[in-house]
Design a protein around this nucleic acid. Structure first.
Lengths: 123, 123
DNA sequence: TTCTTCGTCAACCAATCAGTTGAACAAGGA
DNA sequence: TCCTTGTTCAACTGATTGGTTGACGAAGAA
């Protein structure tokens, strides 16, 4: 495999159609045809999207006559959250070490932090 | 290019080099030159990677003479974890419901479970 | 002033991607 | 058996991406 699984997962979730497929699969397994129905692209295009999700390990398929029942493998999400939380926590701890004023900024989500307060990089 | 921020974040993190940049920025702010140093690609290529991270809102830049101090905006990660946890939890709950359904179906063993019984909140 | 450093912009190239259409295949139903 | 349905495969197209090189602007150093 040329690309690691984490890259495939992120790349798979970077597409809004594929995120929508994941969202719908989270509420129940579906066949390719059912999944393709709401979109105004071809079934083949949706089949490709599902293949991308499958390659990333996010979806598995089960044979059901001619149909393919698609199932969301939600455990794979752990790889993403584990990766993110590692660096988010690291950055957060750096924040807290840096300045108590900055620590308060972390609670006010939504307001962009001013750059000036990040002086003195920890390098 | 009307791509939403969540798509830009996932796309930005889909590249191993960019994830490495994020990892390094998590432990401290750095200039573009410092960030570019370890890789054997051109500075321009790394500058582009940083621009992708900036467009996704993951990195901000602060002017420092000719240098640009890059800073990781770790709060943006919340968008990702929020999205993921929503569907992971949903799938997890469905899985538990499915377990109950399957347990009940073990009376009538012999036929594979039809898809319809795995739908939690479809209709 | 001129030189050097740092970073970005512009143009280009090869590879990948998301979509298309048409064909093939597998399985049930007539 | 043939026909229909569900899905994938193959080939193609246009857009995007990750890389390159060369040139440029901004700012400190000589």
């Amino acid at each position: 495999m040329a690309v690691d699984q984490l890259s495939r997962i992120f790349a798979a979730l970077a597409d809004p159609t594929r995120r929508d497929l994941v969202a719908r699969l989270a509420s129940g397994d579906s066949t390719v045809g059912e999944l393709a129905d709401p979109y105004d692209v071809s079934v083949q295009a949706v089949s490709k999207h599902i293949q991308v999700l499958t390659d990333a390990g996010l979806v598995t398929k089960r044979k059901d006559a001619q149909r393919r029942a698609c199932h969301l493998e939600a455990e794979v999400f752990e790889m993403v959250t584990t990766w993110i939380e590692r660096y988010r926590d690291e950055a957060q701890q750096r924040y807290e070490r840096l300045d108590a004023v900055l620590a308060e900024m972390q609670h006010t989500e939504g307001s962009p932090p001013p750059l000036q307060q990040q002086q003195g990089a920890a390098s």
